[in-house]
Write a protein that binds this DNA or RNA. Structure first.
Lengths: 185, 185
DNA sequence: GTCGACATGTAAATTGTTACATGATTTA
DNA sequence: TAAATCATGTAACAATTTACATGTCGAC
């Protein structure tokens, strides 16, 4: 069977795509975002960002062009790039994302702003909440069954996971209400 | 100047070191820990774990040997390995760790159990709490100053950070009390 | 006796880190 | 005008991903 040679898109690629979809940026601007903001754990090193931009440019997902009212060349999404981003945002939330990629889920949510409808955002949050509930129940079950046998430090570290995921769950409920009551322009 | 050729220890290396310090494991056992437990985001792929074990073996930090009462060869820490682990655990908590490496800090805390004294654990937690406080204040300041101008989704995602770090702060206070009141054997 | 879990590894390709290099532009 | 920041890159190296490969052992 022929190998489909669609180059894979890394999570750094998606993060860049999401950033420049909000606002066109230079490579340097992207690096600064990763370096100085709480956007997640993406590499801001030139050796990671510039090659990533090359990948995205070659795949036709971004272009570097002169913006109106500015005499600086900046990267922005092509329609194909926007589409790719959208597909990524619409991927179903899986329990594994909850356990291993929570930051990415939050970044996705932040990027949804102008790209998805209110209904799609709510679907995402509800699915997020469901998976969170399942995961939290797993954690709690483990805690009650095995908690007593675990050394103190490890148990406390585990409980940190519990309180954080509980906080995330509460956040999720609140976010659903906020989005639901928000006027769609 | 001569380059000191001390091979660098990756965070995967430290995670492995901490795991087998608690209990000797086979390479496969280590992989399963990373795969199935909420221990953090370490690669469980054989292409990551086995080379890491080779590195650690070459550096004299771990050995594979027959355990008493078991006829299986498992990896465990050498005294040098234990020492390296201890030094890692004793590194001061920096604000950057809070922002970008929270999971690693919690893993460190879990690994401290039999390796550090009560006093050292409390120092770690107090320092953790201090840095958390500083970071939280930064986040809150940003939120009150810029919060209104940020698109809804991004603002909510930011607020998720706030609630999680607040929960971590509370956890930290509780952990200090728990450790403080715990009888040292 | 076969299926799944245990167990260890390797090879190729990709990705990321670290460090260097260069030059423009802004600001004090 | 010197320093800091903006801006883009490369080269060498290290690490990880993905996929393959092999074999043992216990359970059903």
């Amino acid at each position: 069977m022929k190998k489909t040679n669609v180059p894979k898109i890394t999570s750094l690629d998606y993060a860049i795509l999401g950033l420049i979809n909000q606002e066109p940026l230079t490579g340097y601007g992207i690096r600064k975002q990763f370096e100085t903001t709480a956007i997640g754990n993406y590499s801001s090193s030139p050796g990671a960002v510039y090659p990533a931009l090359d990948r995205l440019k070659k795949s036709g997902l971004v272009i570097k062009s002169l913006l109106k009212n500015q005499n600086k060349e900046k990267f922005s999404c092509t329609p194909k790039g926007k589409d790719t981003l959208k597909k990524w945002l619409l991927q179903p939330v899986e329990i594994n994302d909850i356990a291993k990629n929570l930051d990415e889920l939050l970044l996705k949510f932040a990027f949804m702003d102008k790209l998805l409808t209110k209904g799609q955002k709510l679907d995402f949050l509800k699915s997020f909440q469901n998976q969170l509930k399942i995961y939290l129940e797993e954690l709690k079950a483990f805690h009650t069954q095995e908690g007593a046998g675990i050394p103190l430090n490890a148990r406390l570290a585990f409980e940190h996971g519990l309180v954080c995921y509980s906080a995330t769950y509460k956040w999720c409920k609140n976010a659903i209400n906020t989005i639901r009551n928000h006027q769609e322009k």
